[in-house]
Every structure is written in structure tokens, then in C-alpha cells.
Amino acid sequence: MASARSRMSRLRQLAAACLLLAGGPASAQSLTPMRGEVTSFSDVFAVRVFPSNPYPQRIRMEVRVYDQEFRPVEAQVSPAAFMLGSESSRPVTVVVPFDGAERRKVRICVESVPFPNQQTQIRAQICGRFLGQRL
């Protein structure tokens, strides 16, 4: 009996400990375009994407570039991190090196960044797929 009571008490303690605090305002994002092909005469190709925040609060965003296996690609992203106001979008220029290849497929991903002191337990990432081809 005492053992069962102790077990219930432990369960209650554990359940209470696992309650995650409610987060702050919700965040949302989108990315345009999500597909594209670029032809380039040089050793790099450039893509301009437009992350947007269609919802009613300002959010912080980061733009990152990955290859097909989601390994980071050393690309120039300008700007790579920024605050985006409600219902607005902004251009982000991504310059990707071919690294000696004739064509290169990359994913350009925009991720909303939780604000400090918020217990955000879900992150959102939207990735566009782009193909660069060298002439």
C-alpha cells in the first residue's frame, strides 16, 4: 500500500515536472519561391528568395543553405539573420559556389528563431529546392 502510494506520488511529481510552460506569441513564416533553376556563366550562382511573415507579430528569421543531404553549404547569404515585421517580406540574396561542379542542387531554408526566455518547443523550417547550372 505504502509502495503504491509512493509510486503514485512519484508519478505525480514526474508529471508535474514534465509540464512545459506555455510559450509566447506564435510565429509563422513562408518562403517564395520554393523551386528554381538558375543558369550562370561564373563559378557561382545567385538566388533571390523572399521569406515572409504573414502573421500579426514580428519574428526573427535565419536563412541557411544545405546540400541534398542537408549538409551545410558555404554560401553567402545576405542577410543571413533578420527581424521581419508583421505581414511583410524582404529579399534575401544567396550566392552559391559551384565548387568545380557543372550543376549543383541546394536547399535554401528559412527558420524562425524562438525569442530568448520563451519555452518554444517547436521550430518551423521551410526549404526551397534550387538547381544551379554552369554554361
Binding site: L11, G23, S27, L31, R35, Y55, P114, Q121
Partner: peptide
């Protein structure tokens, strides 16, 4: 109209609870 996707995190936190055996959360 190309492929687009907008994500809106409406409930950013979930709640984990333990199973009776304490082997699952």
C-alpha cells in the same frame, strides 16, 4: 502559382507525461 508553404506555430509547446511503468514519456 508555384509551390508555397506557410507554417504557423499555433501551439508552440506540448506536454509530456510519463507512462505507468515510467519507461515512456
Amino acid at each position: 502559382v508555384g509551390a508555397t508553404c506557410a507554417l504557423n506555430i499555433t501551439s508552440p509547446t506540448g506536454v509530456l507525461v510519463p507512462s505507468g511503468t515510467l519507461q515512456s514519456l
